[in-house]
């Protein structure tokens, strides 16, 4: 299968196979007018298979979200047909409004304007806790 190379845009590569649609939704890519290609189950030397998303325009991507969803992802910024930057993701220290606190006793359950902020407390086990009530993300 051939998908055209992009001139100015972003390639999100090495997505764990099957997770591209999750990222598409979290990054609100459905709101874009440009071409967005989602490639599923692409053969990969490292991972066997992987997903790739190609976005045919330069947009601000929330790297914290990408790192949280899948820290193995790489992001290439393409300008004038060339890779200008290649970024490797890591687990972010905090994520804002990506996870929602489910604890009914948490202040975020009643104060609607509050951001839902989660902090990484255990990188090995990928555990994030609400900064307000310390409940673990679910």
């Amino acid at each position: 299968m051939i998908v055209d190379a992009i001139k100015n845009g972003i390639v999100i590569d090495h997505i764990t196979a099957g997770h591209a649609m999750e990222l598409y939704s979290i990054l609100n890519l459905d709101e874009l007018d440009c071409t967005v290609a989602i490639l599923k189950n692409v053969p990969s030397k490292k991972k066997g298979k992987k997903d790739i998303i190609k976005i045919d325009t330069l947009i601000d991507v929330d790297f914290d979200v990408l790192g949280y969803v899948d820290p193995n992802i790489t992001v290439s910024i393409i300008k004038e047909g060339k890779v200008e930057k290649k970024l490797e993701m890591t687990l972010p220290e905090t994520v804002t409004n990506v996870l929602k606190c489910k604890n009914p006793r948490c202040i975020t359950s009643t104060e609607q304007e509050l951001d839902h902020v989660f902090k990484l407390t255990d990188a090995k086990r990928k555990i994030y806790r609400c900064i307000y009530c310390e409940s673990q993300s679910k």
């Binding site: 604890n103 006793r105 948490c106 202040i107 975020t108 359950s109 009643t110 104060e111 509050l114 609400c130 900064i131 307000y132 009530c133 310390e134």
Partner: peptide
């Protein structure tokens, strides 16, 4: 003192005086 967990932390970010957490929910 507040029944909701994390309420003193929220207050401390806005208040101009020190906030002492005197107990927040079951936290």
């Amino acid at each position: 003192r507040h029944p909701k967990e994390g309420a003193p932390l929220v207050a401390s970010k806005k208040a101009s005086v020190p906030i002492i957490n005197a107990g927040d929910g079951g936290h």
